[in-house]
Design a protein around this nucleic acid. Structure first.
Lengths: 375, 375
DNA sequence: GACTGCGATTTGATTGATCAAATGCCCGAC
DNA sequence: GTCGGGCATTTGATCAATCAAATCGCAGTC
């Protein structure tokens, strides 16, 4: 549509600089000052507190009074001052989220979706999301200190965990509400009931789905490309493949675990796939999209008819047409918000609420090929 | 630690239900309540205002007094209440950033780096970044309304623009500070000096660098794969290639602009590359990483010795080893912050500050091959 | 010795909303 | 006729900081 030209026909107002914000566009231009409870109250012919009640406990007002007050609020364009509200209620309505530096990787960016959902859901519940950064664990604890002491935020949403994570203790001791997306590996390992609210994606269920999907296409020589044993996430993903295979009575012949010297990455995936193809595999379940990208490249380079499934449904996998296990990030975000909000409402977090979410499989071109005919 | 509950020896005031967060771990446990200016003042043997001055205008205090007060602040673990501060100063110290839904994209996620830098820089200047979402332009204006009226944020950092962007006008009219990462195409086209502070990346300089790089490897048959004419960004990127080629006295023979029906994407890039390879091209400058991924795939599939350069340095390009033009997002973020902060300090934004940033080239495997020997 | 000047520090007032308690109101019952 | 009871609504107090104006202290000068 007519791109350039006139869009700003109106403004020859000069509009140099000074004018104060009295008489501008908004509906609130009654007396040049920002509306307050009192001014709205005057406008509606009631008192401060009645206006406050109209917003906070509308059931306490008589229907017609409520209607009148709400009309005045609308008319004056009144919005409660976040600061004053926070001052009195000792609640900011803000959740904190740590924004990690962008690594390099293919995955890692999955969390954009999580964050978007979290923000969007929070808005629906009249809350906001604030970001912070930290280079190290100690730096993050310092951030906790600042943000909580200044009462800038009410709660934290943490993503990712590692053994001996000091963050949980810090927050728990100070009774700061928080929710975790990521499993409490450390505590679980110690046999102790986890103390905090967490959710995570059931990796085994994901690779299991991937395996079933490949079997339904007719594959039996299904290989697994994964990380070295010892990483909770990786072991779990391998387990899903194993279980599905043995449930189907198929031996888990083909497997390639990277050794710990070898980083997760495209090159590793390609190499593993080449080796496994020679050994007779016709399909690959990969522990990550990085591995899958490599494997898929190797398959195409070899001109083979093999299928590949990755894990995380990263943008790269989507772009390359690789089937991948998609984490239900929207549900995880909603869970985290619910958890945090209920803690803020005084309901202690029920450990039973924590649990695993089942991922889904996004099928793309990389897994449509049936296995090449074999004896 | 030990204390739960009992910490409030003083208050038989009833204070029945709610909060009492007093007596936990921190260094502030002197009397079980959160420290305030007054309590710190008492601790240091000075008055409220002196404590406030120590933090806000330290030059007004005598050196030894200052030292004593700061020591007390440290000792009590005092941190100013964001709410009270904001209430008095009418400033929240918060910048708003719109978090867009994750598209498909290979690119699009570039902004993660921008956002991280923005957050990190903001922290260094005692500011914070808050997120909001919006599905449409009208929804975004509604968000502006809410966030500014509630005084939840002081300023906005906008990314990306389109013609007839209503946002600028809204914010300008209300004197809400904002900075834009992305060119004011519409205004520029109308020949008028742009009214707002903006910065952007010089796309032409980027493709120009890419072209020079390829020429230095010995390539002369350098093709351009881009979008249909009409998009400001795309036209600019093509221009950089053209300029470098004609400066070197090489005719711009090979060019493939997608038609508008064809979306930016891998498949399009692959197809264009195939065609251009046949026409004799030995290197490709692409307007986006999506196109470059496709082109690189086509090159490899054809077993050709051709080089490929993309644009945006997306994680995918990095993962696949594709040379790409890297936008200086850290500098852009710093600029946006500086701009917004100076506006908040009362210095009106100087239009002369706005301008283009020069990108850099990240060289990877996709552009190491010299052209295959040719007559 | 009182007075002025000036810088360092203290006191009073204010910001906008909410909680808690008080007030007004209407109706029925004693 | 008045006294409660039960609601709807209003008034006073408070949250924690900062601004503005008053006060204090100490020299230097007449």
């Amino acid at each position: 549509m007519a791109p350039d030209s006139r869009s700003d026909s109106d403004a020859r107002t000069g509009t140099s600089d000074v004018r104060r914000d009295g008489g501008d566009g908004g509906p609130a231009s009654s007396d040049g000052r920002r509306p307050t409870v009192s001014s709205v109250a005057a406008h509606a012919g009631v008192s401060r507190q009645t206006v406050s009640n109209a917003l906070n406990s509308p059931e306490r007002l008589q229907p017609d009074t409520l209607k009148r007050v709400l009309a005045s609020i609308e008319e004056t364009g009144y919005v409660r001052s976040a600061a004053a509200r926070q001052m009195r209620t000792a609640r900011s309505g803000v959740l904190a989220y740590r924004l990690d530096p962008v690594l390099d990787g293919i995955s890692g960016l999955v969390l954009d979706t999580f964050l978007h959902s979290l923000t969007s859901d929070a808005e629906a519940h009249d809350h906001r999301v604030m970001l912070y950064t930290a280079d190290s664990d100690e730096a993050e604890l310092r951030q906790f200190e600042r943000l909580t002491r200044a009462r800038s935020v009410d709660a934290f949403v943490l993503v990712g965990t590692h053994a001996h994570d000091a963050r949980y203790r810090w927050l728990t001791e100070r009774h700061v509400p928080y929710a975790v997306f990521g499993r409490p590996w450390a505590r679980q390992a110690s046999g102790k009931q986890s103390q905090h609210a967490w959710t995570d994606v059931d990796g085994a269920a994901g690779t299991s789905q991937a395996t079933e999907h490949l079997r339904s296409l007719g594959h039996t020589e299904i290989a697994f490309v994964g990380w070295p044993a010892g990483s909770g996430t990786g072991d779990e993903r391998r387990r899903g493949w194993e279980q599905s295979m043995s449930a189907a009575g198929v031996p888990t012949r083909h497997r390639h675990a990277l050794d710990s010297a070898q980083p997760d990455g495209i090159r590793s995936g390609a190499e593993a796939a080449r080796r496994l193809l020679e050994a007779g595999a016709t399909a690959f379940v990969c522990a990550s999209d990085s591995l899958a990208v490599g494997a898929w490249g190797a398959v195409q380079a070899a001109g083979a008819q093999a299928a590949v499934v990755g894990f995380d449904d990263s943008p790269t996998a989507a772009a390359l047409g690789i089937t991948s296990v998609r984490q239900p990030l929207e549900r995880a975000a909603r869970w985290a918000l619910d958890s945090v909000l209920s803690q803020l409402d005084g309901r202690p977090s029920d450990p039973a609420d924590s649990g695993l979410l089942v991922p889904t499989l996004v099928v793309r071109e990389s897994s449509v090929a049936a296995p090449a005919a074999h004896p």
